[in-house]
Design a protein around this nucleic acid. Structure first.
Length: 506
RNA sequence: GUCUUGUUAGCUCAGCUGGUAGAGCACGUCACUUUUAAUGAUGUGGCCGAUGGUUCGAAUCCAUCACAGGACACCA
């Protein structure tokens, strides 16, 4: 039974006693007229006053009881609402006859949500508090809260029961408030630049726009399978074909792959597409975007992340091949042909899959020796065409693409390029992917002939970029697991959870 | 997927080379009208993640499983 715990039984009993005494333990009659933050601000002058109290002011505040100190005929109660924590002084003789001893002391406890009315005063210890003249129970908590000092630290409970984590850990609430602001600022930034926010399908007939395994669902009315989208890219580009010149979408993508500290099966990204622009314009708007975020989030330019510090005033731009030597320390003569790269990798005890081409091997060098060393924001440009199937070739050098990836604190934060808009080239690349799929690459891109047809009507030269919002929030909040920036991260069902086990079997 | 570390009271954690379970907080009772993790006294609270094995005897040793944390691999 879910409520068979002894402490819960005790609390259910108290709720019953309250009900019998005429107090509804789940009343809907809240009369709050002041948030705790506002109360503390408005009454901050009391500390300077002669009497340290002002009985002419009167407030009604509400919140959950976090601490309770009963000292005979008087008690101190700390209540918390979304805006902050406030100490309440409750004395027997200031409350209705009998209420303190029979109701308050017996039936009100930590975890309950109460409403208190009274006047502001400052205690002997100098804490601005509220002197209660009435106290009402709004909501009875029948499950006890975790321990008051250590709170809740077990990560499994924190993720599975996020509400408890939020009740107990103020800094967790802060992280999610920051996340919300990041999304709202992102939206505002792009709107102010003239971008149009759009919504494209989450259920795709063909899972395109990235190379990843999709989740499959079924549409009964049409009798066909649908794929949860792995990326919105191909739909957003159709909109550019249609004549919108700047669009963005902030939404979820779903990838049926592993989970770890930087991967959740559903994650949030912004993708934006900008006609008549190139990846060089994207570098500029990205710098501006970060500046905008830092300014509106009041973040320091030198941002701590774990053991390191990231200097957001120091944006760098390095071509990939150059970064191999200047950042990665790979000898220049080991960067430009397959044999010497393989020899160099082998000399560092790194084995490579046979059959890799030059671009892939250069990518391998980058992953091994460069990526983790890129602490300050760095745009890596001039990606080899072999590892950039969706990007446009450079007009000057057909071996490289007009692309960059942005790295911060050793992690990829954004991926951007001038878009391929040649329909014949796009068709051939899809056909190449189909061949790869036939020879066993189950993540190769699907053929999307409808998209090719869209391109055939002509897509203006366009630059497009994707930014992983979850990883960005991790960076800005100094969190090192994606689960700490997702309110409800994906978890395996617990053994014995019948509802979820059922789904497992089907 | 591999390696590794966990899982003991509502929460945070002890429990040594096997001898039928302990603390703090919380909760109950009592005292206490300015406390700050309030304090003092006293009491209740456990299928030691699950299943098997070894043993006279298992929270402890072994195996399998479940879930979680971390690392690695995969995710161009």
């Amino acid at each position: 039974m879910i409520f068979d715990n002894k402490f819960i039984q005790q609390r259910i009993e108290k709720a019953k006693l309250l009900k019998e005494a005429g107090f509804n333990p789940y009343t809907n009659e809240s009369k709050r007229n002041c948030s705790i933050e506002k109360y503390l601000n408005v009454n901050s002058d009391i500390a300077e006053s002669e009497e340290k109290r002002d009985e002419n002011r009167h407030y009604i505040v509400s919140g959950r009881i976090k601490l309770l100190r009963i000292m005979g005929k008087a008690s101190f109660v700390k209540i918390e609402d979304e805006s902050g924590m406030l100490q309440i002084y409750v004395a027997r003789d200031n409350l209705p006859e009998g209420f303190y001893n029979t109701m308050f002391k017996k039936n009100i406890e930590v975890g309950d949500i109460i409403e208190v009315a009274g006047f502001p005063f400052v205690t002997g210890q100098g804490e601005l508090s509220l002197h209660a003249d009435s106290l009402t129970l709004l909501t009875k908590a029948i499950s006890p809260l975790p321990e008051k000092f250590h709170g809740i630290t077990d990560k499994e409970i924190r993720y599975r029961k996020r509400y408890l984590d939020l009740i107990m850990n103020a800094e967790v609430r802060k992280t999610f408030q920051t996340r919300s602001k990041v999304i709202s600022l992102t939206r505002r930034f792009f709107e102010d630049k003239g971008f149009l926010e759009v919504e494209t399908p989450m259920m795709h007939p063909i899972a395109g726009g990235a190379n990843a395994k999709p989740f499959v669902t079924h549409h009964n009315a049409l009798g066909i399978d649908r794929f949860l989208r792995i990326a919105p890219e191909l739909y957003l580009k159709r909109l550019i074909v249609g004549g919108f010149e700047a669009v963005f979408e902030i939404n979820r993508n779903f990838r049926n792959e592993g989970m770890d500290t930087t991967h959740n099966p559903e994650f949030t990204s912004i993708e934006f597409y900008w006609a008549y622009k190139t990846y060089k314009d994207l570098i500029e708007i990205t710098k501006e975007y970060f500046q905008y975020l830092f300014e509106h989030l009041n973040l320091p330019t030198m941002l701590p992340y774990g053991d390191i510090e990231v200097n957001f005033a120091n944006f760098q731009e390095i071509p990939l091949i150059e970064s191999l030597t200047t950042v990665g320390g790979v000898p220049a003569e080991s960067c430009n042909d397959k044999e010497s790269i393989i020899a160099y990798l082998n000399s560092k005890n790194i084995t490579v899959k046979p059959g890799m081409n030059l671009g892939q091997l250069q990518g391998e060098l980058f992953d091994e020796f460069v990526e983790e060393k890129l602490i300050d924001p760095t745009f890596i440009t001039e990606y080899p065409v072999e590892i950039s199937p969706l990007a446009r070739r450079s007009d000057e050098n057909p071996a490289i693409t007009e692309r960059f990836e942005l790295f911060i604190a050793g992690r990829e934060i954004a991926n951007a390029f001038s878009e391929l808009n040649d329909p014949i080239d796009q068709l051939e690349r899809f056909e190449g992917q189909m061949a790869a799929k036939d020879s066993g690459d189950d993540e190769a891109h699907e053929m999307d002939s409808d998209f090719v047809e869209a391109l055939s009507y002509g897509m203006a030269p366009t630059a497009g970029q994707g930014i992983g919002i979850d990883r960005l929030v991790m960076l800005l909040t100094n969190e090192h697991s994606i689960r700490d920036v997702l309110l409800f991260p994906a978890m395996k069902p617990l053994n014995g959870d019948e509802a979820e086990m059922q789904t497992e079997e089907n």
